[in-house]
Simulated scan of single mutants.
Amino acid sequence: MTAQRGLRLLPWAGPDGKPCYLSTDDPEGYMSRLADHIESVQLGMARELLEEARQVPDGTPMNVHKLSLLAGQLAGALRDVIRVATSRGERLATPGHPEDE
């Protein structure tokens, strides 16, 4: 994901998995609030999947299908969490700061 100056990386992908960006000066606008809500849902789902993964007993044989499903869900949640972190990190950047040049 590449930072786009002045744009907010949204918590969903567009066609072909390409990142979607929002250009707005209103952090309380409809699309900003929708993105905030979806980020919150994604982070909550990641927490729930992490808890489910922690409950997998060490050394206990497990259904391969269930384990594969859990791994796929964890990978998707990690992708979402990275997108949220990237988006929030880009919005924390201070304009004019040497690291932003």
Rank of each mutant, 00 (worst) to 15 (best):
A3I: 08
R5W: 08
R5A: 14
R5Y: 14
G6N: 07
L7I: 12
L9T: 00
L10S: 05
P11A: 07
P11D: 11
W12E: 08
W12F: 07
D16C: 01
G17N: 05
Y21H: 10
L22R: 02
M31Q: 08
M31E: 10
S32C: 03
R33M: 03
L34R: 08
L34A: 14
D36C: 06
E39A: 05
V41M: 08
Q42T: 07
L43W: 01
G44C: 14
G44A: 14
A46C: 05
E48H: 11
E48Q: 13
L49Q: 02
L50G: 06
E52H: 12
A53Q: 08
R54V: 07
T60P: 12
P61E: 12
A71H: 13
L74N: 03
A77Q: 03
L78W: 15
L78I: 05
R79E: 14
R79Y: 06
D80G: 10
R83C: 06
R83A: 08
A85H: 12
T86H: 05
R88A: 01
E90R: 05
R91N: 04
R91F: 01
T94Q: 08
P95V: 01
P95A: 06
G96R: 03
G96P: 06
P98Q: 15
D100R: 10
D100Q: 07
D100V: 11
E101P: 10
E101S: 09
